[in-house]
Design a protein around this nucleic acid. Sequence first.
RNA 1: GGCCCCGUAGCUCAGUUGGAUAGAGCAGCAGCCUUCUAAGCUGAAGGUCGGAGGUUCGAAUCCUCCCGGGGUCGCCA
Length: 605
Amino acid sequence: MPTESASPHIFARVLASVRTAVSAMETAGELPAGLDLSRILVEPPRDPTHGDMATNAAMVLAKDAAKKPREIADNLAARLASDPLIEAVAVAGPGFINLTLKPGVWLDELKTVLAAGLEYGRSGLGAGEPINVEYVSANPTGPMHVGHCRGAVFGDALANLLDFSGYRVTREYYINDAGAQVDVLASSAFLRYREALGQDIGEIPDGLYPGDYLKPVGEALASEHGDKLLKLPEAEWLPVVRSVAVTMMMAAIAEDLAALNVRHDVFFSERSLTAAKSAGDANLPADEVGRTIEGLREAGLVYEGRLPPPKGAPPEDWEDREQTLFRSTDFGDDVDRPLKKSDGSYTYFASDIAYHKSKIDRGFCDMIDVWGADHGGYIKRMQAAVAAVSGGKATLDVKVVQLVRLLRAGVPVKMSKRAGDFVTLREVVDEVGRDAVRFMMLYRKNDAVLDFDLAKVIEQSRENPVFYVQYGHARGQSVLRNAKEALSDLPDTPESRAKYLAKAALERLEHPGERALLKRLGQYPRVVEAAAASHEPHRIAFYLYDLASELHGHWTQGNQAPHLRFIILDDPTITAARLALVQGIVNVLASGLALLGVEAPQEMR
RNA sequence: GGCCCCGUAGCUCAGUUGGAUAGAGCAGCAGCCUUCUAAGCUGAAGGUCGGAGGUUCGAAUCCUCCCGGGGUCGCCA
């Protein structure tokens, strides 16, 4: 939860300075009033020799102001030169304004890092707005397999990131416990129940779940009910068996998620939407899905009609028939979508509309769903439904995570669902470790396919970026542990040590390697903000890699040049300054790793 | 065939929401361990950003059309 509203980070402060200067130019009549300042950016320049920051302000404003970019830039640069944060200004290229900040600015920022500890980078971006993030939502028909793992880690990290950025996050799991699949689950479990009672069940018939993981369900049913269920007709045993099976599957899934360090606040049952509600208004349908459809019908968004057959190769079993349709085309979808199956029951889409309406009713105007790539074709209709059901007030961002190809030393790992020999999430976590799984899943944009090579992740651990980043953190901790030989009064606890180090003579941090690290630290809040705004946690992973890389590089310089090492035995003043930098790096690495849900180890032995 | 995603160094991928001379890792080449952990570092080499048009001061990024790969296509979830 956001404690105090953090003071704006360096880039935000400089951006404010730029805007102020532009406004002053408007007031002075040097620019027309009312310009759109929203496209002005302040960012690190690609080439560090250009300075600390660059702004595109002059180029962005040139058109509306009907002036040449260079002309605006010169004027703006002159005004910025007197800004207390800024040391030097230069106009370059087509109209970039390159800014060099006073060295003290970066040193002050290090003090901020030290004071904030793991909270550095936390922001009020979300302004306390509630946001619902739904992820995993795997069918409760078996243990989780590797395919689920990417969405789980992605959703979890995204939720962490949004929480850190000032949103009030609810992490949600939608349990598909109402469809035909859980009935199949129940039938499969019933077979295992008969098996547990000593019957010979032979081969598991096609269409049922063959996995051994249902044996404990059969045994649980046998010990609870004896052979009583055998005497009941299917309509009576099925709900009993289904309920036990779903409960046990969800327990297994919860364990798998815990092994991955993924958590949820709300587990929402689909069945709770279709279950008949007690009495009430007799004119209303008895269930939530029906009520949602009726609400849409009253709004003129549901009708009985026919759909054109799919274009291209016509499916063999296509049958032109009238059905209940939602006007998703009113909201940008390609075709209207059916809400009821031919047997009269609701489609998955229908209950999904009711489900998202429930989120809206619970106060979420911002929703994020994390889906697998195979559901990509479903996005438009869901967004259409959210727009319809909320009257355009709610937004749904669907993050699609692409396929994970599981390999072992370059060879695809065979998985056959029918034979039940798919690789479970647990097996992968046990084999390569939670941290490696999580980091690898996040060290890639969510919409790019990911090759996950088990052999590479463990055997050639050098190639694995997670160890690289963790090693950076461990190295920093190692320095702090060893620092006592030069600074005998250095406190042990991180907080008091940070306080102690903040008083160091930070201006002694003059070496280019140190300066680069200082600037890299100062970028962290900006990276967090961008990652949160774009819903892209992978940016954190890449930033951490860059930071660790700069640390390792600077560290190794100390091999050749001992005077660059962090600990200088006969110079406690510079040692303290450098330790302050190390403490800052350690803080940010730990903070970022925490967002990704990855351990920040004290050592790598 | 319609829709969605992807195409960037030999391989795996970034690219700061349109910015300056497109960057890392791995593989290969040339080097660095008497050290606060070499699980590390330094250097050289490697590119028609799939192709062609267009939008503008400026395009890997936005638009259109092709090419190639993946996903999906009324009643499964």
